[in-house]
């Protein structure tokens, strides 16, 4: 037995075992949760047959329960707003930081990475105080939630787009300038088309981050209409459980996975080599 495990010419079996055990440990609970979204009964622990009733049934299903529907809609709305604001802003910042080679550029670059490592709860509390005390006119609710999500997703856009910018280098802009293109045309006709894969990928990452976010969104929420899917799941998971929660969680998971798969595909397919930072950022989500 020991010899079989330790055989230096064989496959690394101990390693394979640990890896396999981890994958099962991490996937099986999610799989079971998804499975019970299709349970025919009310139970979330006892299998009573296959059905779509928690998705499309006439009572208590995702498509007919007003609370669940409102949460899904608000989640998607927030994600859309966040993408629309964070992506153009992040691309602009990335372009600016790439050009800025003077004093202070190094520390700004490091600070751009801070939101990636700041505990989300710290950022949530800080933003809550900001909207309550400094900008009470904005108040809590959709606006505050969107601003909060833009704040912490912006860094991902900057990191992904800058990774691509570094691998593109300056030569294409120089070539465009050489051929007579003024600075804005160097960006519009050359840089943006070359950055397109990174922009699409970062939009997908921001979208996925927004859908999954709980802490910041929870802190900055206002009334019941600003409840998102993760908030709803948290609030009702222990109180009034029903397989409809599993159903809505399944939908959220599918949207996230589909977006990330799209991001990964677009980046790999169109960006060619380089830009490992972007791939790492996508995987990190």
């Amino acid at each position: 037995m020991i010899a079989w495990l330790r055989n230096p010419w064989g496959r690394p079996r101990a390693l394979a075992f640990v890896t396999g055990a981890y994958i099962i440990w991490s996937i099986v609970p999610v799989g079971i949760a998804i499975l019970f979204a299709f349970n025919a009964g009310r139970s979330r622990t006892t299998w009573q047959g296959f059905s779509f009733r928690w998705f499309t049934g006439s009572t208590g299903s995702v498509f007919h329960d007003p609370a669940l529907q409102s949460a899904l809609k608000h989640t998607l709305l927030l994600a859309a707003i966040t993408v629309v604001i964070a992506v153009p802003l992040g691309v602009t910042l990335a372009l600016g930081l790439q050009r800025w080679r003077g004093r202070g550029s190094g520390s700004v670059n490091t600070m751009m990475l801070l939101p990636l490592v700041t505990p989300e709860i710290v950022m949530g509390v800080a933003l809550l105080l900001l909207f309550l005390k400094v900008f009470p006119s904005i108040g809590l609710g959709t606006k505050a939630q969107a601003i909060g999500q833009v704040t912490f997703t912006l860094s991902y856009v900057v990191v992904i787009v800058r990774g691509r910018l570094v691998s593109i280098g300056r030569e294409y802009e120089e070539a465009a300038a050489d051929l007579g293109a003024p600075p804005h045309d160097q960006i519009l006709r050359v840089l943006l088309p070359l950055l397109a894969p990174a922009i699409v990928a970062s939009a997908a990452v921001v979208f996925a981050l927004s859908i999954d976010d709980f802490v910041v969104t929870q802190y900055l929420s206002g009334d019941a209409s600003t409840t998102t899917v993760p908030m709803l799941l948290y609030a009702t998971a222990r109180g009034a459980p029903s397989p409809a929660l599993n159903a809505i969680a399944t939908i959220a998971l599918l949207i996230t996975l589909a977006t990330l798969a799209l991001a990964f595909f677009v980046y790999k397919r169109f960006a060619g080599g380089g830009g490992d930072a972007a791939v790492a950022a996508i995987m990190e989500v």
Binding site: E174, A175, A176, A177, D178, L179, G180, A181, P183, Q186
Partner: peptide, 8 residues
């Protein structure tokens, strides 16, 4: 560079 009549 974009205003010079030289190319590279």
């Amino acid at each position: 560079p974009h205003k010079r009549n030289v190319n590279t």
